[in-house]
Design a protein around this nucleic acid. Structure first.
Lengths: 237, 237
DNA sequence: CAGTGGTCTAGACCACCGA
DNA sequence: CGGTGGTCTAGACCACTGG
């Protein structure tokens, strides 16, 4: 099982520590040997040990305190990353074909609610797009999006047969912050029609707000038919 | 040559690169200066530059290819962590009162489907619990859970007025891996009744499988009324 | 081939912690 | 005080990429 020859030294140190923790030899709160101890044990330099331990901190396996030492972390903090991903890439990654139907694309005036989200005045100019994304021809996402012209002035001229709003915005309005909310709800009549589902079919609705530099760049309402789509993730040590 | 120790050199390099990206000077796909270039620019050693760039890879801001170079990452830059969190803590964190109703707690025999999930034989002994979690008296989660006796042999004796299954398992079966799936669907008749909602109300359903060491520890089906609960998150650089 | 990142060393000085 | 981690250096050899 050991191809040690090609495994970097810092990986060997990490593997050793992970094994002790996973096998319960070192329990949460237990002290991990000091850098100098590991340095001697493995016969490598301290910098290499240091790198291994720093990476384990990032992975959440240990915590370190200057002057005190390294201890095994309380393992209650398993988490997974939910990436902001372009649905085009997502569908391709599953080996399927992605296609888009553009339903609507125009400039609009901001309602009071939209103005507040975008931190603009009521009646300010916004772009509005509505698309339906299909995977192998089957609708999987209804995308209703408002865009701040200050972040993407040429949005109305984009050919959404060639790119997606998500991709275009990622490329033209460098993302600095985003927040989302995922709920379950019933689709509107129009959403149901576009997704080719009955209005009684529950849907996942993600509302996502993105910020680019000084501007609130975009507010999107993404509706997924509950039976055709799910968010999946994995946590791992 | 010791620097002004206030800000470590590698942090200065990271801040510089982040600034270029955030201000749009370097667009996604653009090349980042090589390690030796940055080494000269900052007057520091290559190892220090290397550390800065490696940390930026972990943060998802850049990607590196040996022999080719470092480029600003395309899309995956922003991601958020979806933590595996105890609902008791979650409700308390919102400043509300958490309470639990135990509906069912017993040993059962594994069906074929359950046996496969737990990597056990059909008919193997499992524990089964059903609880309803309330926030300020209002049901917000229906928790239907199967537990592997090998991971938590005393599960049937736990007083779920004092702790939650999630917390008990985190404390007694150190987590090594977990995977989840979030879908939208309608509740079963029993779930709707326990949650005090109509069977036509869409719900978020999270299915979560946890692994502890050699055992699949638990499989949980968590049903949230769509109108009373949402998953929220934030991405930030 | 020249340039890039991937890894590693054997030192060093410092700030911090606990006894 | 001695031991710990936090940081940094000035080299080094290697594997890989691209032209």
């Amino acid at each position: 099982m050991a191809e040690d020859a090609v495994v970097p030294a810092y990986e060997r140190v990490k593997a050793f520590i992970k094994a002790q923790v996973n096998q319960g030899v070192w329990r949460p709160g237990a002290a991990v040997p000091s850098e100098s101890a590991l340095q001697q044990q493995f016969g490598i330099s301290r910098m290499t040990v240091n790198r291994a331990l720093r990476e384990l901190v990032v992975e959440g396996l240990v915590t370190r305190t200057q002057g005190s030492g390294t201890v095994v972390a309380q393992l209650h903090r398993i988490s997974s990353t939910l990436a902001l991903r372009d649905i085009h890439d997502e569908v391709l990654a599953r080996g399927h074909v992605h296609s888009t139907r553009l339903q609507h694309l125009a400039a609009v005036r901001a309602s009071a609610a939209l103005a507040e989200v975008f931190r603009l005045r009521r009646g300010a100019r916004l772009f509005h797009s509505v698309l339906v994304h299909c995977e192998d021809g089957l609708p999987i996402q209804y995308e209703d999006r408002h865009v701040n012209p200050a972040a993407a002035p040429d949005y109305l001229g984009v050919d959404f047969a060639l790119t997606t709003p998500t991709r275009y915005l990622l490329e033209h309005a460098p993302l600095t912050e985003a927040s989302y909310s995922i709920e379950a709800s019933l689709p509107s009549v129009q959403e149901a029609a576009c997704l080719a589902i009955a209005p009684s079919v529950p849907c996942l609705v993600m509302t996502r707000r993105t910020v680019s530099g000084p501007h609130v760049a975009s507010l999107a309402r993404l509706v997924y038919p509950g039976l055709r789509y799910s968010f999946n993730g994995k946590f791992q040590l």
